[in-house]
């Protein structure tokens, strides 16, 4: 199909992984992949993942991030080009930005896509609905389309045929009124990996019996280099912060490995983690619904099983490094 553009999300010069996932997906759709970066970027790295061209969008009013101004700038670029398809990583930033661009270029917006293909000229995607209880095939009814990809559903792969992409500059027209919202500051949760960004998530539920026992979840997550997650029940009980909640009214995660400890697997929880690549569960109730969606499971007491798991995982990690 015709050219596909990809929005480059970067923070402090670091390009976010969902951008590479989108580039890889774009490569499967088109020979010509244009990466759109606000300000300078590592063009060579974008090329390694499949960008054939890089467009650096430059304007003094874009130095402080504003979703509004970035949307205006990217929409101007898209309107000035023959590009009909824009892919965006479905991150916090991407999900806020993409619908705005779609309105400005009169495109159909397809959020949270987990599969993409092209049927001749038009894009067809699959997306979950109702927290993953059903899936829908979607297609745009408009000439242009903006697609947001659920993170970690498309594998980012470098391409062997990568050439250094050509780099050009685009200067949009931006006014002060285009930046009536501006990002002022980012506060990082220091030393804490987020469930949305981690390759491994270890979650605890009511089976942990109390907030004091989450130290076990933290130790297991730390042994694996993963993030700590929690079920709604324990967040509602105040044992863990909402930022760790996985499920329909929390975060939807798709890590490489999800380990559910003492979580029975209510449908609302499954909604938030069922697109994980590998699911493991530890629960003392052999009939817990979580085992029906698990690849690997242990029926047993979390308080006895987790310490043994940590020990064995540490042994493997040690063997790998020695």
């Amino acid at each position: 199909m015709s050219t596909v553009a990809v929005y480059v999300e970067q923070r402090s010069g670091i390009i976010k992984r969902p951008t590479f996932e989108a580039l890889t997906a774009a490569r499967s759709l088109s020979e010509r992949v244009v990466a759109l970066s606000i300000g300078a970027c590592d063009a060579e790295m974008l090329g390694a993942y499949g960008a054939t061209e890089v467009v650096v969008v430059e304007h003094p009013l874009l130095r402080e991030y504003s979703s509004q101004a970035v949307a205006v700038a990217l929409a101007q670029y898209l309107r000035s080009s023959d590009i009909r398809t824009l892919l965006v990583g479905g991150t916090a930033q991407g999900k806020e930005l993409a619908p705005r661009i779609a309105v400005l270029v009169e495109a159909g917006y397809m959020p949270d896509c987990i599969e993409l293909s092209s049927d001749g000229n038009a894009i067809v995607a699959v997306r979950p609905l109702y927290a993953g209880k059903v899936r829908a095939a979607v297609r745009p009814l408009t000439d242009r389309v903006v697609v947001a990809l659920r993170p970690n559903m498309f594998t980012a792969r470098t391409t062997e045929s990568a050439a250094i992409p050509s780099v050009s500059t685009f200067s949009p027209t931006i006014e002060d009124r285009d930046r009536r919202v501006v990002l002022k500051e980012i506060i990082r949760n220091e030393g804490k990996l987020d469930v949305l960004e981690a390759d491994i998530v270890v979650s605890g539920g009511r089976g942990m019996k109390g907030p004091e026992h989450f130290v076990l979840i933290e130790q297991l997550a730390s042994a694996l280099g993963g993030a700590v997650g929690a079920s709604r029940a324990v967040v509602d009980a105040g044992w863990r912060p909402h930022s760790e909640q996985v499920g329909q009214t929390g975060k939807t995660v798709s890590p490489n490995l999800y380990i559910a400890c003492g979580i029975s697997g209510a449908v609302q929880h499954l909604a938030g983690m069922s697109s994980s690549k590998v699911i493991a569960a530890i629960n003392k109730d052999k009939d817990a619904p979580i085992f029906k969606v698990a690849d690997y499971g242990i029926v047993g007491d979390v308080f006895e099983v987790i310490p043994k798991l940590i020990e064995k995982i540490k042994a493997i990690k040690q063997a790998a490094t020695s």
């Binding site: 917006y109 899936r135 297609r139 699911i279 029926v299």
Partner: peptide, 23 residues
């Protein structure tokens, strides 16, 4: 006028390996 069409729905198979062990 609608801009996007959902045209086919399915219930995902959540079937996994299901290798469940004792403790």
């Amino acid at each position: 006028p609608p801009r996007v069409e959902m045209f086919q729905f399915s219930v995902p198979q959540l079937k996994r390996l299901g290798k469940i062990f004792g403790d």
